[in-house]
Amino acid sequence: MYKKDFIEFVEKGIDNFYIGTGNPNSKILIIGKESAIETTDLQSFEWYGNNAKDWKNHIENGTCEVLEYQVDEKHPLRKSWGKNTWSKYQKLSDYILEKETENFKVDFLNHIFTSEINDSPSKTTSKADKTNISGRKKILKASEFIQKFPVILLACSNYITNSENNREINDIFEVEYIGDEIGTKFYSAGNWYFLHYNKDKTKLVIHTRQLSTNVNNELLKDLAEIIRKHLNQ
């Protein structure tokens, strides 16, 4: 049920780092900024801290996380649905699969795995502890599990860069930016993407903004088309 590279990633993560959530056997990995958890939400912090151990239990028992559910009126995501990251991931997933969006339903986890580039949960980016992001990047770079995804969406804005003086994305994911002519598009302030591929074009890494609040819907549609074409080639 679970591949060797994922099992090894989980083993290393126990009491050390966050693994992620979703389907680890999927072809799409989304890496966000950090998990949006209030400092007072002790239950969510406990869930986050036990993430690797929970995955180990799933591996040993041949089980999996809940990958599909309704966001009912009592669900913590309900109030901000349509603006929060989970709802934007769902919208992107629906565009990729070319299916109608169902109100207040999560099922994107069936074919997407998600993780974070910052291993310090925070409800807001401004208050997030960013001191260990560089260490987290080293973990992602060294992980065979992470590197094997044919599509990696870096939805973490300025938490990672690929400037002329600091080719982080190239270095971490062993890809190269394909150039301004076909490799980027700007929609409006704060809405953009950059495309990177490995040498044989089997791996696509997209750098874009955090998918929440006022993310441009045309950006989501274009990202979906790019991802779908890559997976169908």
Rank of each mutant, 00 (worst) to 15 (best):
M1W: 04
M1N: 10
K4Y: 03
D5Q: 11
I7T: 13
E11M: 01
K12P: 03
N16S: 13
G22H: 11
K27H: 10
I30R: 12
E34C: 11
T39W: 10
F45I: 11
Y48G: 03
Y48T: 04
G49T: 15
N50Q: 15
N51D: 13
A52C: 08
H58N: 14
E60W: 05
N61Q: 14
V66I: 14
E68V: 00
E68Y: 00
V71C: 09
K74G: 02
H75W: 11
K79H: 08
W81E: 09
G82K: 05
G82W: 05
N84G: 03
K88N: 07
K88V: 00
Q90I: 04
Q90K: 07
L92G: 02
S93Y: 15
D94I: 00
K99F: 07
E100K: 12
T101Q: 14
N103M: 08
V106M: 08
V106E: 11
F108N: 00
L109T: 01
N110F: 07
N118L: 12
P121I: 04
S122P: 02
D129A: 01
D129L: 04
G135C: 00
A142Q: 15
Q147L: 14
C156V: 07
S157V: 02
Y159V: 00
I160V: 13
I160G: 02
N165P: 03
R167I: 11
E168A: 00
N170T: 10
N170S: 15
I172C: 02
I172S: 05
V175G: 05
E176G: 00
E176F: 11
Y177K: 01
D180E: 14
I182Y: 09
T184F: 06
K185H: 15
F186P: 01
Y187C: 00
G190L: 07
W192T: 03
F194D: 06
N198Y: 12
I206R: 04
T208Q: 03
T208M: 02
T208A: 01
L211A: 03
N216W: 04
A224S: 12
I227T: 05
K229M: 10
H230R: 06
L231S: 08
L231A: 07
N232K: 10
